[in-house]
C-alpha cells in the first residue's frame, strides 16, 4: 500500500526492534535496557569517585550499583529520588567537611548520566525504543549539564583553603540554589502582566 499523500515513504520502514522478557514480566526493548545500563554505569562511576574521595568504604555498598536495575520498572516513580538521595548522603557522611576532592567531578558526571538515563527510561514504556536521534539529543544535553559542573569545580578548587572566601562564595552559591529551587517549586505562578 502506498502511504497517503504528504506522508514519507520512510514511515513504512520499521527496523527490527528486539525485545527481552524476564520471566512473566513485560517485554523490554534493548533501548530501555541500554538506558538502565547507563543509569547503572552512572551509579558505578559515582561510587568509584566516592571510594577514591573518601579513601574507601565497606564493599557491601557497591551493591548499590544494582539499584537502577532493580527499580527499572519504576523509573518514573520516586524510587530513583530515594536511591540518589542515599548516594548523595553517602558522599555527605564519608567525606570530611570543608575539604574538596577533584573526584567530585566524575561523580557529577555519574550523577548527570544516572539522572538523564532514568528520565529517558521513564519517558517510554518498557517495550519502547529510542531512535538514534533521540539518544544523541539526550547525550548532548547530558554533556552540557556535566560541563556546567566544571567551572563550579574549578571555582571550588581555587577557593579551597581560603576559609573566608570559600564561605562567602559557598553562601552566595547556596542562596542562589535555594532561590532557584523555590522558584521552580512554585505550583501556581501568578499571571503575567500584559
Amino acid at each position: 500500500m502506498l502511504p497517503p499523500p504528504g506522508e514519507s515513504a520512510d514511515h513504512e520502514l520499521h527496523p527490527v526492534r528486539r525485545t527481552v522478557h524476564f520471566g512473566a514480566g513485560p517485554e523490554w526493548s534493548l533501548s530501555q535496557l541500554g538506558a538502565t545500563a547507563a543509569a547503572m554505569a552512572g551509579v558505578l562511576v559515582y561510587l568509584g569517585s566516592l571510594s577514591r574521595a573518601a579513601g574507601g568504604f565497606d564493599p557491601v555498598w557497591w551493591s548499590l550499583v544494582l539499584l537502577p536495575l532493580l527499580t527499572m520498572l519504576w523509573a518514573g516513580s520516586a524510587a530513583p529520588l530515594l536511591y540518589w538521595g542515599l548516594l548523595l548522603y553517602g558522599w555527605f557522611t564519608l567525606t570530611a567537611a570543608g575539604s574538596f576532592s577533584w573526584w567530585s567531578l566524575p561523580a557529577a558526571a555519574g550523577c548527570a548520566v544516572g539522572h538523564a538515563a532514568t528520565a529517558l527510561s521513564a519517558s517510554s514504556p518498557p517495550g519502547g525504543s529510542f531512535t538514534a536521534r533521540t539518544g544523541r539529543r539526550w547525550l548532548r544535553h547530558t554533556a552540557i549539564a556535566f560541563l556546567s559542573a566544571v567551572p563550579v569545580a574549578l571555582l571550588a578548587g581555587l577557593l579551597t583553603g581560603r576559609s573566608g572566601a570559600v564561605s562567602a562564595a559557598a553562601y552566595v552559591v547556596g542562596l542562589l540554589g535555594v532561590s532557584v529551587a523555590v522558584w521552580l517549586m512554585r505550583t501556581n505562578p501568578p499571571a503575567e502582566r500584559d
Binding site: 559515582y46 574521595a53 548523595l88 558522599w91 555527605f92 567525606t95 567537611a97 570543608g98 575539604s99 574538596f100 576532592s101 573526584w103 567530585s104 567531578l105 561523580a107 557529577a108 558526571a109 550523577c111 548527570a112 539522572h115 547530558t142 549539564a145 556535566f146 556546567s148 559542573a149 563550579v152 569545580a153 571550588a156 577557593l159 579551597t160 570559600v166 564561605s167 559557598a170 552559591v173 547556596g174 540554589g177
Partner: peptide
C-alpha cells in the same frame, strides 16, 4: 561546607 557536593549537584 561541602564544595564537592555542590559540584556533584550542579548538573
Amino acid at each position: 561546607r561541602r564544595p564537592d557536593l555542590l559540584v556533584i549537584v550542579t548538573p
